[in-house]
Amino acid sequence: MINKKVANAQEAINDIKDGDTLMIGGFGLCGIPENCITALVQKGVKNLTCISNNAGVDDFGIGLMLHKKQVKKMISSYVGENAEFERQLLSGELDVELIPQGTLAFRCMAAGYGMPAIYTPAGIGTEVAIGKEVRNFNGKDYLLEKAFDANFAIVKAWKGDTAGNLIFKATSRNFNTVMAMAGKITIAEVEELVEPGQLDPNQIHTPGVYVHRIFQGKDYEKRIEKKTTSV
């Protein structure tokens, strides 16, 4: 089996440079690649374009990179809950492209399936449609949305093997599988890394062909954004 294992987050992100476009998996703070984000903050790369559903919170997730002013542009669907983000946006330091959540997923999916673009009805008749090609199929209008083109995808899985196969837990799968498929180089950090043969091939969510580097992360905080309980 082809071995994708690298030692740690520092090695995995070593060749990410200023100006790169990164896809970063997760929904809210659920399923985010904590180790790689920390390594990117330490490395201090700047002028990044980040494609991620959200922008973290002030002191966690992509919020840590925003705080160090490493991000030039965010492509996201929802960016609430982040005061520093709002400040940079209003002051013009940060460029933001807000797109529908399904469009974000489909543009990843298209890249992963080798399709140049997809049609979606999301955003028809709104400011999202401005400047985009509209085509009518069976009486309904659709927008042409192009596949993402990202240098790197950085994802977080529950389990993985050194061949790059990944398994995700519960709703932490979110954008991680589609982004893993979409990156020119995909980096996966996992909670538990095992040897080939130890994961059931029937249970794999992302086949190793899509993953270029994999390592076992450490010290996962898994912060909860809105802990809600019942009695």
Binding site: F27, G28, L29, C30, G31, N53, Q101, G102, L104, A105, F106, C108, M109, W158, K169, A170, T171, S172, R173, N174, F175, N176, T177, V178, H205, K222, R223, I224, E225, K226, K227, T228, T229
Partner: peptide
Amino acid sequence: EVDPDLINAGKQTITMLPGAAVFDSAMSF
């Protein structure tokens, strides 16, 4: 029962009922 890997679209912690299924964002939309 709180599980940080199990949240709803409002980012609140939730649970799954018997017969539940999880999937990625592309399949969801």
